[in-house]
């Protein structure tokens, strides 16, 4: 009785058109020969050429990648610790505050997070002379702070599902608590750690608002560069940049999806086989 009514299918089609027509339009216009970004003037790849020979873009991209790599790694370490803590230590002093602290950044408007960080950094510089200059370090610190709570959410969700008995088994077999974590807990939740890292990486790579507040002279990340350009309007080289980014991410995500899907199918097939041989 699971029919798919025409109405729902129609809405789905329109919905996906709504999702993807703007992106496709942007991709098409990145090959536009005209300087006017929205009027078609013939096919050309000149915007890609000018983009790739633009040092400012390349520098911004490198800075963004650096910040994203470092902040994602730290955010993953801290976020995993917090996620395990929340799932395994049900009672410790200050737990209520702690569980509030790992959710608050999720719902705090970015403007407020950004401003409070900026005020904090300015006052710290005023009081203790650090940070002397805002830029790479301050952006990275800010990114770690608000992306670690996303990691915590993922890890916590995974930990709640995982069977506590295997950790107790390891302890029963003579492992100390920290050994249990490295031998059992972390390997078991490793897929969640990987997706947490990926999420933290993308969040950092994508962030405009908090970077805008915590950056300093000379530290322009790629989103900040795009931000300063698009505020002035639509330009063809941004179309080209957008196309490259969308395609990179799209290919990456689809490849990851296909790989995960395969692994899942293989696992299911293995399980079926295992069951049959037990019969």
């Amino acid at each position: 009785m699971k029919r798919s009514p025409t109405f729902l299918i129609t809405v789905l089609c329109f919905g996906f058109a709504f999702f993807y027509v703007p992106i496709l339009s942007m991709i098409v216009y990145s090959f536009n020969n005209s300087r006017l970004a929205t009027v078609w003037g013939g096919f050309s790849t000149k915007w890609y050429v000018s983009l790739l020979s633009n040092d400012a873009v390349i520098n911004a991209l490198v800075l963004s990648l650096k910040i994203a790599l470092i902040s994602a790694t730290f955010a993953t370490i801290l976020g995993t610790m917090a996620g395990i803590t929340l799932a395994r230590f049900t009672k410790f002093r200050g737990r209520t505050l702690f569980s509030g602290l790992v959710v608050a950044p999720l719902i705090m408007p970015e403007v407020i997070t950004g401003i409070s960080m900026l005020i904090f950094f300015i006052l710290m510089a005023d009081w203790i002379g650090w940070p002397g200059q805002r830029g790479f370090t301050t952006i990275t610190l800010a990114h770690i702070t608000f992306s670690m709570v996303f990691v915590t959410t993922i890890i916590n969700a995974r930990m709640v599902q995982s069977d506590r008995a295997i950790e107790e088994a390891a302890m029963d077999l003579g492992s100390r608590p920290w050994q249990v974590m490295f031998d059992v807990t972390l390997p078991v939740i490793s897929p969640a750690i990987v997706s947490g890292w990926l999420l933290a990486f993308t969040i950092s790579l994508d962030d405009v608002v908090i970077s805008a507040f915590t950056t300093g002279p000379g530290s322009t990340t790629l989103p900040l560069l795009i931000w300063s350009k698009v505020k002035l309007g639509v330009t063809p080289d941004i179309n080209a940049l957008a196309t490259l980014m969308v395609l990179t991410v799209g290919v990456g995500v689809i490849a990851a999806g296909v790989i995960l899907n395969r692994a899942e199918k293989r696992r299911l097939a293995d399980e079926r086989l295992a069951f049959r041989s037990n019969d």
């Binding site: 999702f19 339009s25 795009i226 639509v234 957008a242």
Partner: peptide
Amino acid sequence: MLVILPFWTSFLLRVYAWMGLMGKNS
């Protein structure tokens, strides 16, 4: 996957895509 995919692409660029569509000459 198609619903989630836009999540992974730049937020700023998704806004930007509409700037192109909504402009006077688009």
